[in-house]
């Protein structure tokens, strides 16, 4: 790290007397900060053969330095452990307070009230759920289902029209009808049996036939029903997994390669727009906001093409899994963020 004086000299490209620096002078300034020139292997070994005494002397200092470094490393990590435990405890308390203060009580009106102050809500919300490693397959599926249902209900109450749920293994995808039933039941428990504002839901997974049960009304195409019924809000839910990420892009490449081999397409025709059109159609559009319920931001195989400009939200040191306060805080953060494209 260059000292302040030298940094100044570098910055202005003039020395203290105000003369312009030449390349050589600049290098001279930097010399003390550089690591030693790497020695060629051969000279090193020959020196070792010539004077073992000298070699011995050289071995002591690095050893001492190493000992000091290890000591400092240990000290840093001991202090850091203490710090991180304190931070975790602090955040646990804060999260607990949030959980108590902001609870939805399964009432859409309360959730709507929470959303009142937001300048904007995302049009497409995405959540990343993780299968809990503990417990059996059945337990973790049960938890996932519960979480998905709750999130769907919150999303509908917040007035967000599109929700996508990412789960790496795709276990949710394979029980579409069951999940649909569960979500309908949760919606009923939030909105009541026959409320006019109860949203209709459609559940879809890429590469699987869309599931629409016979009892539920078709997703409204033209807003109102034929007999002038009240307009139902609609929530489109998409289930995605690992295979909708890289694998889809690979499949697309295969198709494109095949087309190119048969002379139906020239490689020059492949553009971002083409790929974007294909991917948005077969999987989904890019979400505006991705909520992670873990304690760090790791995308865990989330479709790369779609994660381009999405805002990502997580709560530091949050370990409680899916919680309403995380959802709410993510929307608050998003509502205040200014939207910019590029870096």
């Amino acid at each position: 790290m260059v000292g302040a004086r030298h940094a100044q000299a570098f910055h202005a490209d003039v020395d203290e007397q105000g003369r312009r620096l030449s390349a050589r002078e600049r290098e001279r300034l930097l010399k003390p900060y550089l690591p030693p020139t790497p020695k060629p292997e051969t000279s090193h070994s020959s020196a070792a053969h010539k004077s073992p005494l000298f070699q011995h002397k050289k071995r002591v200092r690095p050893a001492i330095r190493h000992a000091i470094h290890s000591l400092i490393f240990t000290i840093i990590h001991v202090f850091f452990s203490v710090y991180i435990r304190l931070r975790e405890a602090y955040h646990a308390v804060v999260n607990q307070i949030f959980t108590v203060l902001y609870y939805h009580h399964r009432t859409p009106e309360l959730i709507k009230k929470d959303m009142k102050n937001l300048s904007k809500v995302p049009k497409h919300l995405s959540v990343i759920l993780q299968q809990s490693p503990a417990g059996g397959d059945k337990d973790s599926l049960e938890t996932l289902m519960n979480d998905a249902c709750e999130i769907a209900a919150w999303t509908a109450s917040a007035g967000i029209p599109v929700l996508s749920i990412y789960e790496r293994t795709g276990i949710l995808k394979h029980s579409l009808p069951h999940l649909h039933r569960r979500i309908s039941r949760t919606m009923t428990s939030y909105y009541g049996e026959a409320a006019a504002s109860k949203p209709t839901i459609s559940l879809r997974a890429p590469h699987l036939p869309s599931y629409s049960p016979p009892t539920s009304p078709e997703p409204p195409t033209n807003g109102d029903d034929a007999d002038g019924h009240v307009h139902h809000p609609h929530l489109a839910i998409m289930l995605i997994d690992e295979s909708d990420g890289r694998q889809t892009l690979v499949d697309l490449t295969k198709t494109l390669a095949e087309m190119a081999q048969h002379g139906k397409l020239s490689p020059e025709d492949i553009s971002s727009e083409l790929i974007d059109a294909e991917i948005s159609e077969s999987v989904m559009m890019e979400p505006d906001l991705i909520i992670l319920f873990g304690d760090q931001i790791v995308l865990d195989g989330y479709p790369p093409w779609q994660a381009r400009l999405s805002e990502m939200f997580y709560v530091q040191d949050h370990v409680g899994g899916v919680g309403y306060h995380v959802f709410l805080r993510a929307l608050y953060k998003y509502g205040q963020a200014q939207f910019r494209v590029g870096t």
């Binding site: 995308l299 195989g301 989330y302 805002e311 494209v341």
Partner: peptide
């Protein structure tokens, strides 16, 4: 809190 189109292929795992 965005990737802003950086290393999508490398960083999503």
């Amino acid at each position: 809190n965005r990737l802003s189109d950086f290393m999508l292929w490398q960083c999503h795992e």
